[in-house]
Design a protein around this nucleic acid. Structure first.
Length: 379
DNA sequence: AAATCGGGGTC
DNA sequence: GACCCAGATTT
């Protein structure tokens, strides 16, 4: 078929030349490593949220060898607050994979790229096209939206049949030139014109033969999935302080929420927290006092964390199974020296701000050092 | 096929 | 408050 799709790619690229985004940090310089890193960070994460993390990450880990050689705690520290922490663990593992299997050079073949941890079909295509100029299809949220609308594809994209249909179409529309630009053009169209809500069809280069636009179904496509209501969970957040005001942290297991991050013990509200603190950490909590709950929403449940502060009394006893434990001053949990979950960092900022309000001005210097506050503008 | 895995931007 | 985001991996 010569031009059965009505010059879809050509129109997209012409639009891109005038309206595409060209100032993104990973576009200059554009190396395989920087493209790879950006694609991982951008999974389910918006560009504006990624940019400050990307800048900090490449400053500290400028190349694959540096990343591979780094300590995992330091990698997690540079990811803390961005979410989906399995991405960071997979990225780190993949960097070591590249060192071991490809002599430190990011591979240029699809099969080798997709074999790396954390890289699926779409991310592999995006890297292949942007880093090596090899034409490859992608199918992220943007492209799913653009294609379901343009071709009028009904049914939820998660269904295997619909998904296969979308991949086939994406492959068929692929131009044989300007591979990197074409990837970026698809992203930019989806992010700026063919948006989830109120698409700007009047300015879209594809509207002339867009099925959804012609039939008035743009707001109906892609088909939304019925969402279940999110359950609500409650837990204690145990803030056990030693004699020097340092807080007890445990490293969370790799699987599950906040995997690999450091966090004060989180114990379900119904459980016997005193007994659990004793058995798992050899600690008793003295002079307990509560505080206002920390509300935090996840994709599939809401969480209320009830802070429970107290003085830690170490019980001299041998413990059977002690998770990795560390003690850190609250300041270290605010300024990014320890990889803690975003709501935990926020909690300690709130406590510090309250103390600042009551007392001295010494906290000002701490704030200046806090990149998280500045980059994300947390209140 | 469905569930899991974060946090924030945006309306 | 609901929806969504340059998805991959596990169940």
């Amino acid at each position: 078929m010569s031009e059965p799709e009505g010059n879809f790619a050509a129109r997209l690229l012409t639009w891109f030349d005038q309206h595409g985004r060209s100032g993104l940090p990973w576009q200059h310089p554009r190396s395989a490593y920087r493209v790879w890193l950006s694609e991982i960070m951008l999974q389910q994460t918006q560009v504006v949220a990624v940019i400050p993390y990307f800048e900090r990450f490449v400053t500290r880990f400028p190349d694959i060898a540096t990343l591979a050689a780094a300590d995992s705690d330091e990698v997690m520290r540079h990811w803390a607050g961005l979410g989906y922490y399995a991405r960071a663990r997979n990225l780190h593992a993949a960097a070591r994979q590249v060192m071991a299997q490809h002599e430190g050079h990011f591979p240029a073949g699809f099969e080798q790229i997709i074999a790396l941890k954390g890289i699926g079909r779409s991310t592999a295509g995006a890297i292949l096209a942007q880093a090596f100029g090899t034409p490859a299809a992608i199918l992220d949220g943007n492209v799913k939206r653009v294609l379901t609308r343009w071709a009028g594809i009904e049914g939820h994209p998660a269904e295997s049949l619909v998904n296969a249909q979308l991949w086939t179409l994406a492959e068929r529309l692929l131009p044989d030139k300007r591979a990197a630009d074409y990837v970026q053009a698809q992203m930019d169209l989806g992010a700026t014109l063919c948006t989830a809500r109120k698409p700007a069809c009047a300015r879209c280069p594809l509207s002339t033969d867009c099925v959804a636009h012609a039939t008035g179904r743009s707001s109906q496509l892609p088909t939304k999935k019925a969402r279940r209501e999110r359950p609500h969970r409650e837990a204690w957040l145990i803030l056990a302080e030693d004699g020097e005001g340092r807080v007890l942290l445990e490293q969370r297991p790799g699987s599950g929420i906040w995997g690999g991050l450091w966090c004060p013990p989180v114990i379900a509200l119904g459980e016997d927290h005193a007994q659990l603190l004793r058995s798992r950490f050899g600690v008793a909590l003295l002079g307990e006092e509560g505080g206002e709950a920390i509300e935090h929403g996840f994709t599939h449940f809401d969480l209320s964390l009830h802070p429970l502060r107290g003085r830690a009394s170490l019980l001299a006893q041998t413990l059977a199974e002690t998770p990795p434990v560390a003690w850190h001053p609250p300041q270290a949990l605010r300024d990014g020296r320890v990889a803690v979950p975003a709501p935990v960092a926020r909690y300690f900022e709130r406590v510090a701000a309250a103390a600042d309000l009551l007392g001295g001005h010494h906290v000002a210097s701490v704030r200046r050092r806090s990149r998280r506050r500045i980059s994300k503008g947390n209140a």
